[in-house]
Amino acid sequence: MKKKLTQFTAYFIIWLLLTWSLHFQEVMVGIVVALIATALTRDLFPDEMIKFLNPVRLLWAIFYILYLIFYIILANFDVAYRVLNPSLPIAPGIVKVKTGLKSELAKTFLANSITLTPGTLTVEVVEDNYYIHWIYISTEDPKRQKQIIIDRFEWILRRIFE
């Protein structure tokens, strides 16, 4: 019940933002649409989303978004440097790193964050192992690779989801 209510509220807020009007008719249609969407996506909506109702987790999530934006900007300068450099400084390959995260949603966020940060792209996730395409492999040591790719996000995600 709590999950359905969260889901309904989230959909209804998105509807209100999209229509950007508090007219009676818009709100009525919004309630109907949100109810239908709630019924249809019952299985798709992850159970763990409810965790965001906790204010401490929400604050960490907001911090995480700002932290991620910083790395996304860094990633873009990295791409710009590699693409504009006449000698094309790349040494690509697929590396394997292991995460300590247990929650499925946290793993999804980690995979997406890895894709948006400098030089790395998640190709495949098998249980705890991430196969990551790295545009410039600077070290062959798996421990050091984990430190560079995963550690900067793992500690925050652990606070948000676990």
Binding site: I73, V79, L121, H133
Partner: peptide, 14 residues
């Protein structure tokens, strides 16, 4: 794979 790297990062932020 390399092309996806450039396309994803730059196009997302852009």
């Amino acid at each position: 794979y390399n092309r996806l790297q450039a396309a994803t990062k730059s196009v997302t932020l852009g």
